[in-house]
Design a protein around this nucleic acid. Structure first.
Length: 785
RNA sequence: GGAGGCAUAGUCUAAUGGUAGGACGUCAGCUUUACACGCUGAAGGCCUGGGUUCGAUUCCCUGUGCCUCCACCA
């Protein structure tokens, strides 16, 4: 072992070693206890940034600890190509439009992205030392996953859990597609707030007068004394002449506008809530293409209709006031067109009746950190609607469903037909109700959460050969970010419960996010992305992992250059200690002395703490404790025994080797590369037989190695040395400057020799001195040369 | 509007019902046969107000500030 630690070439070489030795493979034949992890499949959308690495590194450190504890690790990896980001990526890369290419062909292309990006992701994850088993790779668009997703739907339908209902949905009239909340953007717009008088008591301010023909009710606040008498009355709508009822609801802000609101189906989200809550009439004024459907305005765009209606209202004397305001509207982020609400038939999973069950399951799950449980509870308690799982999109996993052309009855696919594309495939059987053989396919696709909520079942091969159901399900651990507790975590519990009546995992580990140096989330639009590959190359994986392990689980952490420096210093220090041992110790034999037993006992107490911290998913605390001990070990113990080493006395060798190996093992989960490099060079086949430190046994605390007397004398010796160091510093002496005599009151046993050796003292004497060491009952007398 | 988190030296951060630990930075000393990416020493800190307590940085309440998730924006 020579020169400095070169992490660039070491990390590369070691990654190859791990590959060759297959240390991450799940062993199907082993009878060791299984530890199975349900991991978040990253979206295939482009390049990874260090925010991604942050959570992954935290998870991996925990998994590495578990591996050293002797578990048979099932650590799969998925790639998510079932979603809008991948759809956009594929369309761009292949210069195609999904809808024109056809679903089958497009899915083929999407599956091909797996091959290309698998290599890219694999190289990044390998560089990070993510210890997943690549033979367990799945994609969320693969054949098996499509089967699982469709089978899940079919089972839920048969259970009576899946149903179809007309529902207002967010709709982009330009793209003629449903959009999700996530695809919305706010746009501030100058518009007119038009105050319309219905009658002498009813005046309403609105930004969307063109929806007047779609008005189905008028709302006032129940606390609004002025309007109390109006509640329950019918009011005539200007221009259109129909009558609508006045209803009291607390969602109305009495201070806004006139304090009265018209509810139109549908102008905004509140209209939808009211429509559902009060069972209001459905009166649509706008169609799929965003054009008016009302007589007299047919075919007009809403804005044109608005002008015309306001004009007519003015002429009729209904307009009291027009006020210019700035107003936020929702637009579709892709095409920037304004969003409307359109009514479509949608599939739902009925689960509101399961709230109590779901809360009970949430309470059974062991949350790390604990407080994340609140978010889940809060979400479940406030659920108001069933789970909408259909999306009016072209790309996605199709519903395995047709409808009978003559009676409309639902016709499910047969299990052996899966995966099925109803747009192309035909049902095997006739209509159960009327016997017709003519069917209309369901064109919608399943929401991506309907699929990703199955990851534990996907990993267990639930829908196909079921080969891992007994072995890994329920899984040991789910790892994920806190932002998707209400989506991924929640829906996974729902599905697992519905299909297996079980909680899908025992523990859940929720990570925070890695942020840019200013504490802002990394986003393409913010232009603050710190690239994963570049960072790993520049600083090495151990440094990036050190950064990730520096913050407590669940907390956000900004990327700091100084963490990289600290990590590199630690790696370098480890390397230098290794070099020192390598150069000076032929073997790890020798009879330990007092000070050796002292550091051994110290090390074991630290091991006890570190183990407990890891058991509590506190990789951050474990890393801190292990690191702190290492610096203590090298600045103290190593200095104390140097004189013996240089004097060809081998009595410290045993301890030096064992304690340093113990330290390396404690740091191995967080810094897998440098610890492995040292392990291979220094300890493999000498102190440990394992092919890799990462499959070596986690050390155990054994009381028999703790000698209380040595602990006491070693602590005293350490205090004395500390004091002498200070004394030499105050006297502007070099630390190895010779001292004629040192008188110490405490009983140092044979550690007195180490004090003399470390501090270059000619004569050690036991007795009272004139100087008292603070915070101890030890007194000393120091005589210079 | 609902929920959750955070507040500790110039910066990042740990633990804790009784003298608050570490890292970076700063200052000073030391070429000490692994390491100047080092060693040794020094200076420097608990957001406001109230409560519980013999004692609160820690527990409770309040305020303020910051962050996140969810909902909403006629």
């Amino acid at each position: 072992m020579l020169g400095k630690y070169d992490y660039k070439q070491a990390e590369k070489r070691i990654a190859e070693l791990w590959n060759k030795e297959k240390i991450y493979d799940f062993d199907e034949k082993s009878d060791k206890p299984v530890y199975a992890i349900d991991t978040p499949p990253p979206t295939i959308s482009g390049r990874l940034h260090i925010g991604h690495l942050f959570g992954l590194a935290q998870h991996d450190s925990m998994v590495r600890y578990k591996r050293m504890r002797g578990y048979n690790i099932f650590y799969p990896i998925g790639l998510d190509n079932n979603g809008l980001p991948t759809e956009i990526l594929v369309e761009k890369e292949h210069n195609v439009v999904a809808e024109k290419l056809g679903r089958e062909k497009f899915i083929e292309l999407v599956e091909k992205t797996k091959e290309k990006y698998e290599e890219e992701y694999k190289s990044v994850f390998h560089a990070l030392a993510l210890s997943v088993d690549w033979s367990l790779l799945y994609t969320t668009m693969s054949k098996d996953v499509r089967i699982a997703s469709q089978l899940s739907f079919m089972e839920l339908y048969k259970m009576g859990r899946a149903y179809r209902k007309e529902t207002p949905t967010l709709w982009c009239p330009k793209d003629r597609t449903a959009v999700s909340q996530m695809e919305l953007e706010d746009k501030s717009e100058n518009t007119k707030f038009v105050y319309i008088r219905f009658d002498k008591d009813v005046e309403i301010a609105t930004t969307r007068p063109e929806l007047l023909p779609a008005i189905v009710a008028i709302f006032v606040n129940p606390e609004d004394k002025k309007r109390e008498k109006l509640v329950g009355k019918m009011v005539e709508v200007p221009l259109f002449g129909n009558e609508v009822k006045v209803i009291a609801d607390q969602r109305v802000d009495p201070a806004k506008g006139t304090g009265m609101v018209m509810c139109c189906t549908f102008g905004d989200q509140t209209d939808i809530e009211w429509y559902k809550a009060y069972n209001l009439e459905l009166r649509m004024a706008i169609d799929d293409s965003g054009r008016m459907t009302v007589e007299g305005y047919k075919g007009m765009k809403p804005k044109e209709a608005r002008e015309k209606i306001v004009d007519e209202l003015r002429k009729g004397g209904y307009v009291l006031k027009e006020q210019e305001i700035e107003h936020d509207t929702k637009i579709h982020e892709r095409c920037k067109h304004e969003i409307e609400f359109i009514v479509k038939e949608q599939w739902y999973i009925r689960y509101l009746d399961l709230k109590d069950e779901l809360l009970r399951l949430g309470a059974q799950l062991k949350w790390h950190p604990e407080y994340m449980h609140h978010r889940y509870d809060n979400w479940v308690q406030n659920l108001q609607w069933d789970w909408g799982i259909s999306r009016q999109r072209f790309f996605g996993i199709p519903f395995p469903v047709w409808y009978c052309k003559s009676c409309g009855e639902v016709r499910l696919a047969e299990k052996e037909q899966l995966p099925v594309n109803p747009l192309v495939d035909k049902p095997k059987l006739k209509c159960e109700k009327c016997g017709s053989a003519e069917f209309v396919p369901e064109a919608d696709v399943l929401d991506t959460w309907a699929t990703s909520s199955l990851t534990p079942l996907i990993n267990a091969h639930w829908a196909t050969d079921g080969k891992y159901m007994d072995k890994i399900y329920p899984m040991s651990l789910r790892t994920q970010g806190h932002d998707i507790i209400t989506f991924w975590l929640f829906t996974t519990i729902v599905k697992s419960y519905l299909h297996t009546k079980k909680l899908p995992w025992a523990d859940v580990m929720i990570n925070g996010h890695g942020l840019d140096p200013h504490g802002k989330p990394m986003h393409k639009s913010l232009g603050n992305i710190i690239d994963a590959v570049g960072t790993l190359e520049k600083y090495g994986a151990d440094s990036v992992r050190y950064w990730a392990a520096s913050s407590n689980l669940g907390e956000e952490a900004s990327f700091q250059e100084k963490d990289m420096t600290s990590a590199q210093r630690l790696a370098n220090k480890l390397w230098n200690v290794a070099k020192f041992i390598d150069q000076n110790c032929k073997d790890f034999g020798g009879q330990p002395k007092e000070i050796d037993r002292w550091i051994t006992a110290r090390a074991l107490y630290v091991l006890k703490d570190v183990t407990a911290l890891f058991e509590d998913f506190n990789y951050a605390g474990a890393k801190r404790a292990a690191e702190e001990f290492f610096w203590f070990f090298s600045d103290n113990y190593l200095e104390f025994v140097k004189y013996r080493i240089y004097g060809k006395d081998t009595s410290a060798n045993f301890t030096l080797g064992h304690v340093f190996l113990l330290t390396l093992k404690m740091l191995a989960p967080v810094m897998p590369f440098v610890t492995e490099e040292i392990y291979q060079n220094l300890f493999r086949d000498k102190l440990d037989k394992a092919v890799s430190i990462h499959v070596s046994a986690w050390p155990t605390f054994d009381k028999k190695w703790v000698d209380e007397n040595s602990l006491k004398q070693g602590d005293a010796a350490q205090k004395v040395i500390e004091y002498v160091r200070q004394w030499k510093h105050n006297n502007k002496m070099a630390l190895n400057a010779e001292l004629a005599e040192l008188v110490v009151s405490a009983d140092l046993g044979d550690t007195a020799a180490d004090v003399a050796g470390a501090m270059n003292v000619k004569k050690m004497t036991k007795g009272q001195g004139s100087q008292k060491i603070p915070d101890t009952d030890i007194s000393v007398e120091i005589t210079g040369s």
